[in-house]
C-alpha cells in the first residue's frame, strides 16, 4: 500500500489458542494427506495416517508424529535427521494452514461491508520480509 497516503493504522492480534482452535482434525487431515503426496516429501517409506480423537497420528517409516491443536509431537530416536526433517515440514505446513484459515476468517467477516479482494504480497515488517495476505475493499 502506498502508506504515505494512509490516514490511520491499527494493529491487533488474536491469541495462539484462537489459531489452534481453527486447526480441527477435519480441516488438517486432508491437507496433511495432500502434503505427503507431494513429490519429494516421502522417501519410499510406509505411511499411515489416522485420526485419534482430537489428534492426527502420522507414521512415516519409524517416525511417529502426533498433531494436536497445531502442535506436532514426534516420537523417534534422538538425533534422527529424518524425523527432524519430517517434523519441520509438518510444523511449517500446520502453521501455514492456520495463517491461511485465519485470513479466510477475516475475509469472511468483512463481506458484509462489500466485496473483499485478497492477494498475497511480500512486506517489510520491521526489517523482516514476510509473505502476508492483503485484503482490500472500498467503502463508498
Amino acid at each position: 500500500m502506498p502508506c504515505n497516503l494512509a490516514v490511520s493504522i491499527t494493529k491487533a492480534a488474536v491469541s495462539e489458542a484462537h489459531l489452534r482452535a481453527i486447526l480441527t482434525p477435519e480441516v488438517i487431515l486432508p491437507l496433511i494427506e495432500a502434503y505427503l503426496r507431494l513429490p519429494g516429501v516421502l522417501h519410499a517409506e510406509r505411511v499411515t495416517l489416522q485420526r485419534q480423537g482430537d489428534a492426527i497420528v502420522v507414521t512415516v517409516g519409524r517416525v511417529t508424529m502426533t498433531i494436536r491443536e497445531g502442535r506436532v509431537e514426534t516420537q523417534a530416536t534422538r538425533g534422527d535427521v529424518r524425523a527432524q526433517e519430517l517434523t519441520d515440514g509438518i510444523s511449517a505446513l500446520v502453521a501455514g494452514i492456520a495463517d491461511a484459515l485465519f485470513a479466510q476468517q477475516i475475509r469472511a467477516a468483512l463481506t458484509p461491508f462489500g466485496t473483499v479482494a485478497a492477494e498475497q504480497v511480500t512486506v517489510d515488517n520491521d526489517g523482516v520480509s514476510q509473505v502476508v495476505t492483503m485484503l482490500t475493499m472500498t467503502l463508498m
Partner: peptide, 20 residues
C-alpha cells in the same frame, strides 16, 4: 470512496489501514 486495507500477518496478527 474510502479504502480499507487489512494485512493478515503470519501468527494471527492484523494491521488495518484506512485511506482516502
Amino acid at each position: 470512496a474510502v479504502e480499507l486495507k487489512v494485512y493478515v500477518m503470519p501468527g494471527g496478527s492484523v494491521q488495518i489501514f484506512v485511506d482516502g
